[in-house]
Design a protein around this nucleic acid. Structure first.
Lengths: 204, 204
DNA sequence: CCTAAAATGAACTGGGAAGTCCATTTTTAG
DNA sequence: CTAAAAATGGACTTCCCAGTTCATTTTAGG
């Protein structure tokens, strides 16, 4: 990516990403300018282009990657050990609290809208995030199944997909309404569905 | 709203909104300019400001309202008569098909990002849409309950909220991945949960 | 008809924001 | 120590796009 970066350069680059992330969280992504970022990070215009030669989009993509990494980190250690019903409820509380405190800003969705979902890089970041997220949920469900809390025939991947969709939608609705009702309902109903063992009736 | 609008003016105004909607669906919202809309609708700059004196934001908000109205319309007549399991599955198919054909563009989420969620008008549009959508789902669930397909104690509003969140998240994931897997899983699991009667265990 | 209001066309303005350039300072490595 | 490479400062350029202005054409209504 870079031929050489001194420790100082590395630090500056990191500072730019973190500062940019903060600016994007505070102001609207659309209206955030390079000058805002420059001011926030205490850098000069030439530095921004020194570290991100392809310009603003490259910087925004780096911020998106940074934010994507944080999404799962913020759910740890709970997300990785969904091995009891109690753990599931703890995870629930962490997720709700994380997004509630975030308020009505979703840096990621905003960023992707700005960069364009179709950009290969942008799509890769979000797809990778969703994939890892769903894998963690699936692992948790599988653990419950193997622990005998769910029937052996249970469709783990479908349940994980549905739960992930619920969380995404709950967050997205919270952005608009400012209320966490839907996020809570989605997770609660999702967990309850697990606890019922998801016995299904055939589609007529 | 307007002191007087001749039929011709009315038609032009409508043409602007529809043309703008089309432009916003085809290109990225962020990069769409008034000149694009002007060209698409065969109007002049002064006409845009004649019909939307407050400028671009006002026009975008009108487009958002237009798109919001279409969201529920496109689900009719199925959304309004969810009175049998068969009807639920028909609705499911319509929703999946609607969003699948829409591809990876979500005019609404893009618009709201651009206008800013905090703008009173913008927030009102999306909140109203969600409210009506959820009310329709709740009516359907209530119908099933009253028809004896669900226990009388069933929490209709929570189920409707969770289902709506699932749909939202499924659509949002489809935007990123291009696949309808999650949307289908969310709705399927949601309906299945209904069919199981949503019997719940107490939270420990 | 005829006049006032509404609708339209098109050139123009002003500002803001991305991106460039080059001089200067700092760091690295031999 | 010193020369090359990296990091930094900040003014400057360029251009795009929202919004304005005003003249002209069309429509409505008495």
């Amino acid at each position: 990516m870079h031929r050489s970066l001194t420790p100082k350069g590395e630090a500056t680059r990191a500072r730019i990403i973190e500062g940019a992330a903060q600016v994007l969280r505070e102001s609207n992504v659309v209206s955030a300018t390079l000058d805002d970022i420059r001011q926030q990070t205490g850098t000069s215009k030439s530095q921004l282009f020194h570290y991100f030669p392809e310009g603003k989009d490259q910087l925004l993509l780096a911020v998106a990657q940074y934010e994507a990494d944080r999404v799962l980190d913020d759910q740890q250690p709970y997300l990785s050990c969904l091995t009891s019903w109690d753990a599931w409820y703890q995870w629930r509380d962490v997720v709700v609290e994380r997004y509630r405190s975030q308020g009505d800003t979703c840096p990621l969705s905003a960023l992707f809208l700005q960069i364009g979902r179709t950009t290969p890089g942008a799509r890769a970041v979000v797809v990778e995030l969703l994939k890892r997220w769903q894998a963690e949920l699936a692992a948790g469900i599988r653990a419950m199944r193997d622990g005998g809390h769910l029937p052996a025939s249970y469709d783990v991947d479908e349940a994980a997909a549905a739960l992930l969709a619920g969380v995404q939608g709950g967050v997205s609705i919270m952005m608009s309404t400012g209320r966490s009702t839907h996020l809570e309902a989605a997770i609660d109903v999702g967990i309850r569905h697990l606890r019922m063992g998801g016995r299904e009736l055939a589609r007529p």
